[in-house]
Computed example of a mutant assay.
Amino acid sequence: MDAHTERTSAANMTVYPILFAISLGHFLNDAMQAVIPALFPILRSTMELSYTEIGWIAFALNMTSSVMQPVVGLWTDRLPSPRFLPLGMAASLLGMAGLALAPNFWFVLLSVLLVGIGSAVFHPEGSRVVYLAAGARRAFAQSIYQVGGNTGNALAPLFTALIFVPFGQKGAAWFMLAAAVGITLLWRVSHWYGHELGCRPAPSQTKKAQRTDPGHPVAFALALLVFLVFARSWYSAGISNYYQFYLMETAHISVREAQVYLFAFMIAGAIGTLVGGPLADRFGKRNLILWSTLGTAPFALALPHAPLSLALPLLLIAGFVLSLSFATFVVYAQELLPNHVGMASGLIVGLAFGMGALGAVVLGNIADLSSLNTLMMLCSALPLFGALAVWLPKDRT
């Protein structure tokens, strides 16, 4: 076997230990991000925050990471930086310390910005590690990576019920230990990543036949993909940031009880993410994006009108179906821009998903100016935009 054949064989092998390690790092990173919405009921009570101010906190977190992720991705496409992985986790550690001690709204915003910066630095390089370790199973590998992050996000309601209700915002200090574990883990992953960069040719060398700059069909597909993720993110922002308050207002349940419903939506999303990868590999990425986004619409539309007894199953189904295509969006973007894997990941995981932060502010204003019921009704229609996925190029195209 010659050297070229050996490199090709290695590139097609899936490196599961690294995939599971980076997925765990993603879990820890997103669990620390989940601390912020988990603190919303506590901060609203102790600091007397409005829904608009809660929206601004969500905006600060997501916009920091969304604006920076494509920039970091573009930089690391040209100059990969394995040390960004532990450095991003270190920034989140500082953010957790700040949240535990924050005396006012502005200090909370500063701490949240640190967590956002840590996430922006982590995600593009984490996606590149997955790309290198995936071998021939890219959608499945991406689903392993993303399920770590989705599971971390899904823990937000449990953090509220088990940590922040009894201990208040000082409970955020416990997550400094999670950050320390993450720094150690990602330091080891960065060594493998650096070694792989030295052994494999750059994507630009292996794909010379493909143009570096996207043409008009690719640019249209990428713009449509970003819009679909944008609509999906606004729906998720409405559920994750405000549905707990909607239940507390309309069903008159406690903060702790409301977390059960929010957790159901998020953990179903984590399961859907894991299931979606193999489905995309088998039935096609474009098909799964269409079925997943549009398929959520019936359950989303029914949710605001359903009695409390049906809210839980509707949330479970909506969260599961919506998240089937979570990892697929990233892989689809990477295949549209094969020479810019980091930037493609940043556009989808960062910019497009992070634009849900803008949705959090807008939705918060809607709740303050009208009602939470109006907010939920508007959110329920957002998955209908999934019908636009029919204009995405098919996988073979």
Score class of each variant (00 low, 15 high):
residue 232 R to K: 04
residue 192 W to V: 00
residue 127 S to V: 03
residue 343 M to Q: 05
residue 295 G to T: 11
residue 244 Q to E: 03
residue 266 M to C: 13
residue 218 V to N: 03
residue 42 I to F: 05
residue 13 M to H: 13
residue 140 F to V: 09
residue 122 F to H: 09
residue 97 A to L: 15
residue 145 Y to T: 04
residue 124 P to I: 00
residue 368 D to S: 15
residue 374 T to D: 14
residue 175 F to P: 10
residue 392 L to G: 07
residue 190 S to V: 00
residue 58 A to K: 04
residue 336 L to S: 13
residue 277 G to R: 01
residue 33 Q to D: 07
residue 54 I to M: 12
residue 191 H to I: 14
residue 226 V to S: 04
residue 13 M to R: 15
residue 373 N to G: 14
residue 291 W to Q: 01
residue 159 F to C: 02
residue 215 G to R: 07
residue 234 W to D: 06
residue 100 A to L: 03
residue 392 L to E: 12
residue 235 Y to S: 11
residue 138 R to V: 07
residue 251 A to L: 12
residue 213 D to W: 14
residue 256 R to P: 04
residue 306 A to K: 11
residue 380 S to N: 02
residue 281 D to Q: 06
residue 291 W to S: 03
residue 55 G to C: 10
residue 288 L to E: 03
residue 331 V to A: 02
residue 85 L to C: 13
residue 258 A to W: 07
residue 397 T to G: 06
residue 347 L to I: 12
residue 121 V to A: 11
residue 358 L to E: 04
residue 344 A to N: 09
residue 124 P to D: 05
residue 257 E to F: 10
residue 226 V to T: 03
residue 313 P to V: 08
residue 392 L to H: 04
residue 202 A to R: 15
residue 364 G to T: 08
residue 379 C to W: 03
residue 210 Q to K: 05
residue 334 Q to M: 11
residue 357 A to N: 01
residue 123 H to I: 01
residue 338 P to Q: 00
residue 88 G to C: 07
residue 133 A to M: 06
residue 236 S to I: 12
residue 49 L to T: 04
residue 121 V to W: 04
residue 317 I to D: 00
residue 11 A to S: 15
residue 28 L to A: 09
residue 155 L to G: 01
residue 379 C to T: 11
residue 114 L to V: 13
residue 285 K to T: 08
residue 105 F to A: 00
residue 379 C to H: 12
residue 206 T to C: 04
residue 152 G to T: 05
residue 99 L to G: 08
residue 192 W to E: 14
residue 14 T to Q: 10
residue 260 V to F: 10
residue 140 F to Q: 14
residue 92 S to D: 01
residue 320 F to C: 07
residue 365 N to A: 09
residue 9 S to N: 13
residue 305 H to Q: 09
residue 184 T to H: 10
residue 271 I to E: 08
residue 327 A to V: 02
residue 191 H to K: 08
residue 161 A to S: 13
residue 124 P to S: 04
residue 82 P to S: 11
residue 390 V to W: 15
residue 332 Y to W: 05
residue 281 D to R: 06
residue 93 L to V: 11
residue 385 F to T: 15
residue 254 S to A: 01
residue 120 A to I: 01
residue 148 G to S: 09
residue 324 L to I: 11
residue 387 A to E: 12
residue 128 R to C: 06
residue 11 A to E: 11
residue 229 V to Q: 09
residue 240 S to W: 02
residue 385 F to M: 03
residue 69 Q to V: 01
residue 186 L to K: 06
residue 189 V to D: 00
residue 211 R to F: 01
residue 157 P to G: 00
residue 61 L to Q: 14
residue 274 L to M: 12
residue 206 T to S: 07
residue 102 A to E: 12
residue 189 V to S: 05
residue 97 A to Y: 14
residue 296 T to W: 02
residue 162 L to Q: 14
residue 150 N to F: 15
residue 111 S to P: 13
residue 288 L to N: 00
residue 227 F to E: 11
residue 226 V to G: 00
residue 187 W to F: 12
residue 350 G to Q: 09
residue 82 P to T: 08
residue 354 G to V: 10
residue 234 W to N: 05
residue 76 T to V: 11
residue 19 L to G: 01
residue 25 G to P: 00
residue 371 S to Q: 08
residue 180 A to E: 00
residue 233 S to W: 02
residue 134 A to I: 04
residue 112 V to F: 09
residue 89 M to D: 10
